[in-house]
């Protein structure tokens, strides 16, 4: 059931919280204890805005257990405007509408659920930008 694990992750999953190095300002998502640029161990919480570009994507035909089997299931790499890249599911889009370089935005969706009795894990996904 992993309840404590998902509880610890809620800032990351719900609010896109990562870290900013106190010494050199490098941003990381997810948060890192050691700065990838200057190796400093001092960092602050940084909340990312959730806007980015689609760097790559793939339509999955074989899923892991417990993932909502929507048609289709698309995974992607998104480069956030602030710099870091993250792996995420791409939602609210037909694969033919996706293209490398398109603008995407974060939404909070059901990532995983284990059957009808288990907990529902919510977290970030990205979709083509809605509205303007």
């Amino acid at each position: 059931m992993e309840l404590p694990r998902f509880h610890r992750l809620r800032g990351t999953l719900y609010r896109l919280e990562g870290s900013r190095c106190e010494d050199c300002g490098a941003l990381s998502f997810p948060a890192r204890q050691v700065c990838p640029s200057c190796s400093s161990r001092k960092s602050l919480l940084h909340r990312f805005k959730g806007a980015g570009t689609l760097w790559s994507f793939s339509e999955l035909y074989q899923l892991q257990r417990g993932y909502p089997k929507d048609v289709p299931n698309v995974i992607g790499l998104v480069k956030l405007d602030e710099g870091p890249m993250l792996l995420t599911q791409i939602t609210d889009a037909e694969p033919e509408d996706l293209s490398i370089g398109m603008r995407v935005q974060m939404v909070t969706r059901l990532i995983r659920s284990t059957g009808e009795a288990g907990p529902r894990v919510y977290g970030y996904k990205f979709r083509p930008v809605v509205g303007g």
Binding site: Q62, G76, I111, R112
Partner: peptide
Amino acid sequence: GDSENLHGATFVALNALIMRRYMH
């Protein structure tokens, strides 16, 4: 675990992401 596996990334998926970008 937290940043790839949790989001449904299978091994094939990770390689596919790299392959598509490489092709592009």
